[in-house]
Design a protein around this nucleic acid. Structure first.
Length: 534
RNA sequence: GCUGGGUUCGUAUAACGGUUAGUACUCAAGAUUCUCAAUCUUGCAAUAGGAGUUCGAUUCUCCUACCCAGUACCA
């Protein structure tokens, strides 16, 4: 029988989750869902020095916002899983809480000759590196150097035992075998071979804080948690040979997961991977959620910028993956169905902020008018407009009080949604449907409020006020256009003069649309204010 | 430097040895409209370079160039 698919996303809580990290989580999630397997969230907090308060909560919230929900892990539907139980045989999911577990594995490796104790101090290693650099070489702790350093390979058994007992600065290092070709397979990149002579003896466990390093913790936990596929960033590809060797040393080769290394997200312009700085410079978020670091520095987030999580996820999914055809719009469920590892791109993908906006625009248009109305409400309220009633409310507007019924707002939303990328930018075109202009765009005023235009517009206003058909877009438009034509007036001048009067600017919504919303009284008032200004 | 990975229009990508190298974003022009936006139409624009294999290479092999990552008691 095929083993149940279990994949994990294992971020380190050293800061906010970067959008590249979200993509890695997403691909893991899609892979798991598609195979009816489990998606596990594990926190790799084995670096006590780089821990950032709030980072873990941020990661959990960001994934939740994206709709990437773990089946298992440190957080399950908002509940923190702290300890192992029948339901959670693999818990806890925070490596700091698994602390006591790793030493025995490291020592097992030593006992079997796959690792050794190293007593060199950071200062000694620093010195060795500096010296090597002076000669234009790179120091590596490994085959060529290990027999000249202070470790259990060079020291006597007694001395080794004494140092282990009496000092706390030592580490356990993997003993990389000589001249062995490691043959690896990557689900995205295919077959890869590396000779162990180019590899060094990585630290697996540190006595100083009694914590494993990534490499050990990763292999041990993936094994214990029965992970079947490891889908992670490309930065891990160089340590894949070590990980293969570790599985072999532990004798876990038969259950070793398959690996997939995802290419990195690159900055929109120039070279290099996407960083926080690029976002600040080019004006787009690199984080899913707003983040304030311990120093009080704020980074913007997709959520706060007004992106829909569906649009953000869709956009991210298409950066480095494609369905094999021209389709670009996918819901999460559709992604789950369409996703396939062999359509994942090998090369890094440059992030395109314009395309991200395009996705949001598409999602905004797909959204139901009623839903958008709810989302638009807070925007209106922020501009001092109150929305009364609910979906059943009759159409009503009170420009004096700034009160408009829910149904009125919905009608506005329907009209202006085509002009917006984000919910909040529906306000600009909609503003004149909620309040009279308080000022006029200077250039437009100079151009369109001429004596001649004002006179024609005044007559058009009188005509409209006397119009006794239904004050709706179609009849008003027909009548007004007919009136202007009958008088043989220049259409553009009259219309733009009216728009100026109605909205304060010469560009925006159609005149008949505006009139159908604001009605005769408001028309009369706005024309009077414009005339008063002149 | 060394090791590994990568390279199709500006960007994301399609074309699993045979196409006028397709699509989307961006940009430009036109149509439409009372303006702007939207919409529609059209256009600009790519196989990094060089060898080889082959009747035929975007696709396979090698070399070069360039880019990325790793080279920590960080993940």
């Amino acid at each position: 029988m095929e083993k149940r698919t279990r994949v994990r996303f294992a971020p380190s809580p050293t800061g906010p989750l970067h959008m590249g990290g979200v993509r890695t989580a997403l691909y893991n999630y899609l892979f798991a869902r598609q195979r009816g397997g489990d998606f596990i969230l594990r926190i790799e907090d084995t670096d006590s020095h780089r821990f950032v308060p709030g980072a873990e909560a941020y990661i959990i919230e960001a994934l939740k916002w994206c709709g990437i929900t773990p089946d298992e892990g440190v957080d399950e539907n908002g509940k923190v899983v702290e300890t192992a139980s029948e339901k959670h045989p693999h818990a806890p999911y925070r490596q700091s809480q698994r602390k006591g577990l790793y030493r025995q594995y490291a020592e097992q490796l030593v006992a079997n000759g796959y690792a050794y104790y190293a007593f060199d101090t950071p200062e000694e290693l620093e010195k060795a590196r500096a010296e090597a650099e002076k000669d234009g070489k790179t120091f590596i702790y490994g085959l060529p150097t290990r027999m000249g350093l202070r470790n259990s390979l060079t020291l006597s058994a007694e001395e080794t035992a004494r140092l282990i007992e009496e000092t706390t600065g030592w580490t356990i290092r993997f003993k990389m075998p000589a001249d062995t070709v490691v043959k690896m397979d990557d689900m995205i990149r295919g077959h890869i071979e590396v000779n162990t002579d180019t590899l060094d003896d990585k630290v697996l466990w540190k006595r100083s804080d009694e914590l494993p390093t990534y490499h050990l913790a990763n292999i041990v936990d993936d094994h214990l948690m029965e992970i079947t596929e490891v889908i992670r960033g490309e930065e891990w590809l160089p340590s894949l040979p070590l990980h293969y060797m570790l599985y072999k040393a532990f004798g876990w080769e038969d259950t070793m997961p398959r690996f997939a290394h995802l290419s990195l997200l690159l900055k929109p312009v120039g070279n290099g991977k996407l960083s926080k700085r690029d976002g600040d410079k080019l004006g787009f978020p690199v984080f899913p959620l707003k983040w304030t670091n311990p120093e009080g520095e704020v980074s913007r987030g997709y959520r706060e910028d007004g992106y829909f999580p569906e649009a953000f996820v869709n956009m991210l999914a298409m950066l480095g993956w494609n369905p094999g055809n021209d389709r670009e719009l996918f819901s999460m469920d559709e992604l789950v169905e369409a996703f396939s590892m062999d359509k994942v791109q090998k090369a890094g993908a440059k992030f395109n902020p314009e395309k991200a906006k395009w996705y949001n625009r598409e999602y905004l248009r797909m959204k139901d008018d009623a839903d958008l109305t709810e989302l638009f409400k807070p925007v209106l309220e922020a501009h001092g407009i109150s929305v009364t009633g609910g979906p059943q409310s009759p159409l009503s507007s009170d420009f004096e009080k700034g009160e408009f019924s829910w149904s009125y707002v919905k009608k506005v939303v329907k009209l202006v949604k085509e002009r917006a990328t984000f919910v909040q930018d529906m306000w600009t075109p909609a503003e004149s449907l909620f309040k009279a202009p308080v000022e006029y765009v200077e250039k437009d005023w100079a151009k369109f409020w001429t004596a001649e235009n004002a006179e024609m517009a005044g007559k058009a206003v009188d005509f409209l006020l006397a119009f006794n058909g239904p004050f709706e877009k179609e009849p008003v438009e027909t009548a007004l256009v007919g009136f202007i034509k009958d008088n043989e007036w220049p259409m553009g001048k009259v219309m733009n003069c009216l728009r100026l009067v109605l909205t304060g600017s010469a560009s925006g919504l159609g005149i008949a649309d505006i009139l159908s919303f604001i009605g005769k009284d408001e028309l009369k008032k706005r024309f009077a204010s414009a005339r008063a200004k002149a």
